[in-house]
């Protein structure tokens, strides 16, 4: 069974990979349905994750009389109500979409705002945690970029040297970011190849 799984992963991966380098060839004929199936399977995998969360994790909490089972109950009830509402209302309807725009967005936006406050509070002790030159550089960078983002230094246009200096500093993270992006790409490349050659088999769970 493990060999079969590996063969599926390797062959499908190889077909899709070859499609990158030989577009418009016969490989595309085999590649397109594979991609379609993978897209469908991704959706189904999402469904598996949701059902697992609701009926395995939270339902089990209720059965096990977990101290926070009430919240789990609220979660399951809301889940079922939403599904029922979705079945009766069209998912593309404005009424159903209000669940997202009027409930999900306000709650998550507020959570983000709370996170910002928490981050600022945590940053008060930045230098207490990392008392080395890198920590100090990070600390300075945070402050400078917050000030730059705020636009407070817009008056610097009257001082050309300051404008050039700020403009240059504003671009410095790009070099680091480019290095990181290249690092990420190399990492993805290595991991992808490891999966394709069978060094890593995350599907044999």
């Amino acid at each position: 069974m493990k060999v079969l799984n590996y063969l599926i992963a390797a062959i499908t991966g190889l077909i899709v990979l070859l499609g990158y380098f030989f577009p418009g060839t016969g490989i595309s004929l085999a590649r397109s349905p594979l991609l379609d199936w993978a897209v469908t399977l991704s959706g189904v995998a999402g469904l598996v994750a949701i059902l697992n969360l609701v009926f395995h994790v939270h339902w089990k909490r209720i059965q096990d009389k977990h101290p926070r089972r009430l919240y789990s109950g609220a979660l399951i009830v809301t889940f079922l109500l939403t599904v029922v509402a979705g079945v009766f209302l069209d998912p593309g309807s404005a009424g159903f979409q209000k669940l997202v725009t009027r409930v999900q967005v306000p709650v998550e936006s507020t959570l983000m705002a709370v996170l910002a406050i928490t981050l600022v509070f945590a940053s008060l002790k930045l230098l207490q945690r990392q008392r080395n030159w890198m920590g100090f550089l990070f600390f300075l960078s945070v402050i400078i970029f917050l000030v730059l983002n705020s636009g407070v230094l817009a008056f610097s246009t009257e001082i050309p040297i300051l404008t050039n200096l700020l403009s240059a500093f504003h671009r410095v993270p790009m070099a680091g970011a480019r290095g990181m992006l290249l690092g990420i790409a190399l990492g993805s490349l290595a991991t992808g190849i490891r999966v394709l050659i069978g060094s890593e088999k995350p599907y044999n769970g």
Binding site: L124, L126, Q128
Partner: peptide, 27 residues
């Protein structure tokens, strides 16, 4: 909303700076 945005960011930067200075002095 730009005025609020600018003010909030500037105050946040100021708070972090002061926090850093206090941390340095106390430690």
């Amino acid at each position: 909303t730009f005025a609020s945005y600018q003010f909030a960011l500037f105050i946040a930067a100021l708070l972090i700076f002061l926090g850093g200075v206090v941390s340095l002095v106390t430690t």
